[in-house]
C-alpha cells in the first residue's frame, strides 16, 4: 500500500503544479486508502488469506497411513474425473435449468403486476411475496420438510381425506423438484424486489410517449419495460447461477428426511462438506471447492458473454 500511495504522491502533483493546489492530491489519495482500509483488511483476512491457504492446501494429500505429501495438481485431476462430483454438477445444472426460469418468470410477473398499479394493496402484496426471503433457509427447509411428510404431513393428510394419494415428495424422482420448490419460494420475492426497483427507475416519459403512439399496457410491458429490465435480469441470473451451483442448506436439511435419496454427493457443496468432515479428505475437499468455484466463474462468464452479444446484435 505504501508504495502505491508514494507513486500517487509523485505523479498527481507533478501534473498540476506543486504550488497552487499542491496538498490536495496526496491527501485525497491517502484518505481514499483510509476509507477502504477497514474493508480491505477484513477482505484480506477473512477471504483472500483463507482462499490462498485452501488453494495451497489443495496441492497436498494427507493420508491416515503415510502422512502428508505434496502432490501438485493430483487432487484436481482426480476431481475432474470424479464421477460423483460430475453427477453432482449435473444435478445442480439440471436444477438451474428448471428452477431458475420458473423463479425468474414468477418474479418478473409479480414485478410487472405491482408496477402496473393495477394491484390493490400493492405494498402488502409486495411485502407478502418478499417475506419468505426473510425466513432463514434452514427454517424454510425444515418447514417444507414437514409439509412434504409422507404419512403425517399436511399435504398427505389432506390427500388422504379426499381419498387421493399425495405424490412422494421425498422420493428419488421428485426430490430435486421439491427442493426447487423450496428455493423458488424463498427467492422469488428477492428477485422480484430487484426487478421492481429497476422498473421504478424507468423514466415515465417513455410510457407517455408510448401511449401517445397508441401502445396498450401489454405492448408497453413487452416492448419497453422488459428490454429496459435486461441488465437487472442479467444480474438476477448471475446470482442464480451462483446460488444454484452452491446449493447446500436445503438438501443438507432434507437429508435427515430422505437419507437414501439425498446422498452425500447430491450437490458439489454437500460432497465437499462430507469429504472434509466425514472422510477426513480435507485436501481433496479443498480441491473440489475450487473446481466448483471455477465452474461457477466459467458459468457466470459464459452467461454474461451470451447476453451481451445478444443485446449488441
Amino acid at each position: 500500500m505504501s508504495t502505491e500511495s508514494a507513486t500517487a504522491t509523485a505523479t498527481a502533483p507533478a501534473a498540476k503544479g506543486r504550488n497552487t493546489k499542491g496538498g490536495k492530491g496526496p491527501r485525497y489519495a491517502r484518505t481514499g486508502y483510509l476509507f477502504v482500509a477497514p474493508f480491505m483488511i477484513a477482505f484480506t483476512a477473512m477471504f483472500l488469506v483463507p482462499l490462498a491457504y485452501a488453494a495451497w492446501f489443495s496441492l497436498f494429500r494427507e493420508q491416515m497411513i503415510g502422512g502428508n505429501v505434496f502432490v501438485g495438481l493430483d487432487n484436481y485431476t482426480r476431481a475432474f474425473t470424479d464421477p460423483l462430483l460430475m453427477a453432482g454438477l449435473g444435478r445442480v445444472a439440471l436444477f438451474f435449468l428448471i428452477q431458475v426460469p420458473v423463479m425468474m418468470a414468477l418474479a418478473l410477473f409479480f414485478a410487472l403486476a405491482l408496477d402496473s398499479a393495477l394491484v390493490r394493496l400493492s405494498r402488502t402484496v409486495r411485502l407478502a411475496i418478499f417475506m419468505p426471503y426473510a425466513v432463514p433457509s434452514v427454517v424454510a427447509a425444515l418447514m417444507w420438510g414437514f409439509l412434504y411428510g409422507p404419512d403425517f404431513g399436511p399435504i398427505a393428510q389432506f390427500a388422504d381425506r379426499i381419498g387421493a394419494t399425495a405424490p412422494d415428495f421425498l422420493g428419488a424422482d421428485l426430490m430435486l423438484g421439491s427442493i426447487a420448490n423450496i428455493v423458488t419460494w424463498e427467492f422469488t420475492g428477492y428477485n422480484m424486489i430487484l426487478l421492481y426497483a429497476a422498473l421504478r427507475a424507468i423514466p415515465v416519459e417513455l410510457y407517455e410517449a408510448a401511449s401517445v403512439d397508441g401502445a396498450g399496457p401489454w405492448r408497453i410491458a413487452w416492448s419497453i419495460k422488459i428490454p429496459l429490465l435486461r441488465p437487472a435480469i442479467v444480474l438476477c441470473m448471475v446470482f442464480s447461477v451462483i446460488g444454484s451451483f452452491q446449493l447446500f442448506n436445503e438438501p443438507s436439511i432434507m437429508r435427515t428426511l430422505a437419507p437414501n435419496v439425498i446422498i452425500a454427493e447430491y450437490t458439489p457443496n454437500l460432497y465437499a462438506y462430507n469429504l472434509a468432515f466425514v472422510g477426513q479428505e480435507y485436501n481433496y475437499a479443498a480441491a473440489v471447492s475450487f473446481v466448483l468455484g471455477f465452474v461457477i466463474m466459467a458459468g457466470s462468464y459464459l452467461f454474461m458473454l451470451a447476453t451481451n452479444r445478444r443485446s449488441r446484435s
Partner: peptide, 20 residues
C-alpha cells in the same frame, strides 16, 4: 440469491482455519 454466495467462502474458511 446473493446471500448464498457467502457459503463457499464459509466452507473455504472452515477448511482452512482449523488446519492453519
Amino acid at each position: 440469491m446473493n446471500p448464498r454466495f457467502r457459503r463457499r467462502t464459509g466452507l473455504a474458511a472452515a477448511l482452512a482455519s482449523p488446519l492453519a
